[in-house]
Nucleic acid binder design. Structure first.
Lengths: 256, 256
DNA sequence: ATGTTAGTGTGTCATATTGACGCAATGATA
DNA sequence: TATCATTGCGTCAATATGACACACTAACAT
């Protein structure tokens, strides 16, 4: 019987042609002022904006690593997180020439590391805007929420990652509930609708939205109303956690 | 102004605590005899069954690597491929004790490599069963199609990967067309329906299925009928490629 | 205090979609 | 030529959807 030595003796493990660098990038969504926001960091040296991210330790799963990164960036635990795509184009780590010069200059011993191709796992996260405390990391001097239209160029392929995250979120809206992780505990129907509209990028009929949303059975209507607004006080709702979880598992149906 | 050297001087790049091993695993689906089949390989040394997979070269994207792997396994180019999840649990590379002994024995210099945790990107692929030529790789002595109920234990967490692929496929069925990559050029409505039923794991009403499928406008009905069966000869259909592509892009609606 | 205004709660109605089923036609087999 | 399982094509009630009407109310300006 041949042993594993025989089997593998011709296989070229040790040339390092298969040693890849892994990172993860997080698209962190929050909802505030009836607007969808994304958490970004600004690089210390180049002042470019980027998605928060990090590396994966050898004893961590990606999910654990992403949670660690987001705990660092927001102070929050148990964030709603989902892998959505891996980005691995060989050119994805190519910087624009000006930035590359900056990095290569100063006889920096780490520029080799920086110029490697990283295979990056994209996560999107949904967090309660009001509870997050944006905190920069080792490479950045700023961490802040940005609305989508405030975001111009991002580092590397991060714009592409952001767009894909949005696209994924839009798709998921069609077969799973959303809102629990983005809204306060109590919220109004118009607030929930605005959230949906912002993500979908289109307006929805107020009355039909309510009908459909209620039909899912994931909301508890409260007696309380939200006062202080300039108009008729809307009722407050909360999610029915039990049914919400079930709906996450089993899926909803009907698109928007 | 601080330069990048200052920025990174305290960051521990070089401990290798961030050097991960990457692999990819493919769940290759085919359809034959009205049954869904999955392509598996059998390991030379341990005789365990596994999903076909491979490593990613430093100048390849994941997609290119997966195409390379599948070209090797099936002889086919331009296979329909989709990432669906990354598997990264630290224990995922732990083998069962008996197998581990086999691998560690024989003073095999590569057993360290084999016992590493690999972060593996899961792909699923849809291929025309009749055109694929299953071919084992360097580590395997057999490559063959298996129906789902013929599959028992797979190596490592490959069963989990397979299940997740199936689950993903089921979900995708709700918002994108399927069939072009799995069926022959011409096919009958009952064949298409069987495909859907097999993936969903439940039966569908023949007449309602046809109505819904036709409503998508992705089929061309041919004048030809399929003879040879023991009963009334069903019409043949082909996919309307233009509309099929559009539907892939824009999505369908309504679930099963 | 009163009217205005914009946002809210609730309901209606025509139309489209869905699920469940009927029935005649057909092609190999007995 | 009869049988039988399967196919093509259709019906109908129930349900879901999209578009819209109308009354209500909290804050604000006058």
């Amino acid at each position: 019987m041949q042993n594993i030595r025989t089997v593998t003796q011709n296989f070229d493990f040790h040339t390092h042609q298969f040693l890849n660098h892994i990172s993860l990038d997080c698209v962190v969504f929050g909802f505030h002022d009836n607007q969808l926001k994304v958490l970004l960091i600004r690089m210390k040296y180049t002042k470019e904006w980027a998605l928060p991210g990090g590396f994966v330790k050898e004893d961590e799963s990606l999910e654990v690593a992403a949670n660690r990164v987001l705990k660092d960036r927001t102070g929050l635990d148990n964030i709603f997180l989902k892998q959505f795509k891996v980005f691995s184009e060989p050119q994805r780590s190519d910087r624009n020439p000006a930035v590359k010069d900056l990095i290569d200059s100063g006889s920096n011993p780490d520029h080799e590391w920086f110029n490697q191709r990283f295979i990056s796992i994209g996560f999107y996260a949904l967090v309660d805007f009001s509870k997050a405390e944006p905190t920069p990391d080792f490479f950045s001097d700023l961490c802040a929420w940005k609305t989508l239209d405030e975001i111009n160029t991002l580092i590397l392929d991060h714009s592409q990652i952001l767009n894909k995250a949005l696209e994924t979120l839009r798709l998921q809206l069609n077969y799973q509930p959303l809102g629990y992780n983005l809204l306060a505990d109590k919220f109004t129907m118009p607030e929930l609708q605005k959230l949906y509209e912002t993500i979908l990028g289109k307006e929805l009929d107020r009355r039909n939205f309510q009908r459909k949303m209620l039909s899912y059975g994931i909301l508890n209507k409260l007696q309380e109303r939200k006062t202080g607004g300039a108009h008729k006080a809307p009722y407050l709702y909360e999610f029915n956690l039990e049914n919400y979880q079930k709906a996450l598992q089993n899926g909803l149906f009907g698109g928007w």
